[in-house]
Design a binder for these strands. Sequence first.
DNA 1: TCTACACCTTTACGCCACGTGAAGGTCAAT
DNA 2: ATTGACCTTCACGTGGCGTAAAGGTGTAGA
Lengths: 253, 253
Amino acid sequence: MEYTIQKLGQLAGVSTRTLRYYDEIDILKPARINSSGYRIYGKAEVDRLQQILFYKELDLPLHQIKEIITSQSFSPAEALREHREKLLNKREQLDRLILNVEQTIAANEGRITMKDKEKFEGFKKQMVEENEQKFGKEIRDKYGDQVVDQSNKKVLNMTQSEHDKATQLAEKIHTVLAEAFKTGDPAGDSAQEAAELHKEWLMLYWHEYSKEAHANLAQMYVDDERFTAYYDKDQPGTAAFLRDAIHIYTDYK
Amino acid sequence: MEYTIQKLGQLAGVSTRTLRYYDEIDILKPARINSSGYRIYGKAEVDRLQQILFYKELDLPLHQIKEIITSQSFSPAEALREHREKLLNKREQLDRLILNVEQTIAANEGRITMKDKEKFEGFKKQMVEENEQKFGKEIRDKYGDQVVDQSNKKVLNMTQSEHDKATQLAEKIHTVLAEAFKTGDPAGDSAQEAAELHKEWLMLYWHEYSKEAHANLAQMYVDDERFTAYYDKDQPGTAAFLRDAIHIYTDYK
DNA sequence: TCTACACCTTTACGCCACGTGAAGGTCAAT
DNA sequence: ATTGACCTTCACGTGGCGTAAAGGTGTAGA
């Protein structure tokens, strides 16, 4: 199959200018030039263009791409494996970024707090601070995507009235919880009322309720400092107290 | 919390040059200038930089970003929701690209064939040819990630000797299958031998075997033209014949 | 056969988002 | 008092094209 410059451009989704530029910098030459001086591309050029675009997707500069695919030690098969690796990396980074956005939304709604540093998780391309970057992932691994995702997903589709209700409930939890915290008894009436209210509040975000998930989430409030900071901001120890109350409420262990 | 230009740069993973440029083009001004002329950034600037980087991740030019975040009708909360949407879109596209790479690898190894057009699926950003773009996804939805992923994943980590063995087995399947096809009986000895060999071959790619997955894959060979083309290339109808043989072999239905 | 129109060509200037000096001032520690 | 890590402005360079401008080519229809 032979292609003119425009045909190839449409096939691959690039402009004719781009193809001429690639010709100019000797990274993709046409298979031949016809009698009128038109550039004609063949099968090999199609594959080569595909290779180029793969590398471009990884943000490699063209001169490096040129080096790579013109080097005689270049193995297309191996290169593809590496591509795949790097794309999977990129997807992980994108996932971090999505997590970041979701957390920023949550932070804006007062469901968690965020440190300045955390605001930029997912932007950094390098693997510096690998620990830090894995933060979100660890939470997910430990408590399951279910907990993190569900609460994020539903809130993003809430109506205004639902949202107002949630805010009101959250405030009520706060006052009842503060009252209960003074008694120091997580099994007491007010603490159990807080746990009950917390369940109600949770139902605005979750589709299904399970005691186990509720208890897990309570533990997460203690383990994840961003949640802890939110609950502890008036009285340190409140997050742990809420966890205890919920664990009693849910008969956990 | 206050930051000097370098501190903010490290926090956000951008260069000081970038921050000075953002100052220059009035997209991100420091909170104040100290007595020595140093740029000092505060909390509001941190948040604004985060917004800018979100938009940059979506490849918006800076002047547009400026317009957006300086417009008084700009709602950060809504913007975040939109961000999330677009990032999810981007991830879908990335998934298509990964699928593309995996298919290219498979094509190179002769497990499927690929048309020129398909070589560029996933590069095109627009939603033209929506049907075509969903192709890979549909296969996944229909047969489950398990079937597609497992066969892709393991082959990418195969050693040379494993790979040689796979190639030999594939050839043997081909000859036995061609022989069986002549008899026309998918329940016959040679057809069942082909099915058995196909299972052996499969075990080089899969971690676990189940009759159901095997039967499903066989049906996919018929439904997905790329596989069909591979099996039918010598004798049309071979893919369907293999499916029948495997369905008998696995007692499917 | 003329004309329209969609192609193709080369040449050349422009642009964005910085990178990379150069030349010099500031700050904290030694 | 010196070092060295900061900061400043000014200014030129660059990558990967976009976008005319000016002209040649191919073919379908009047």
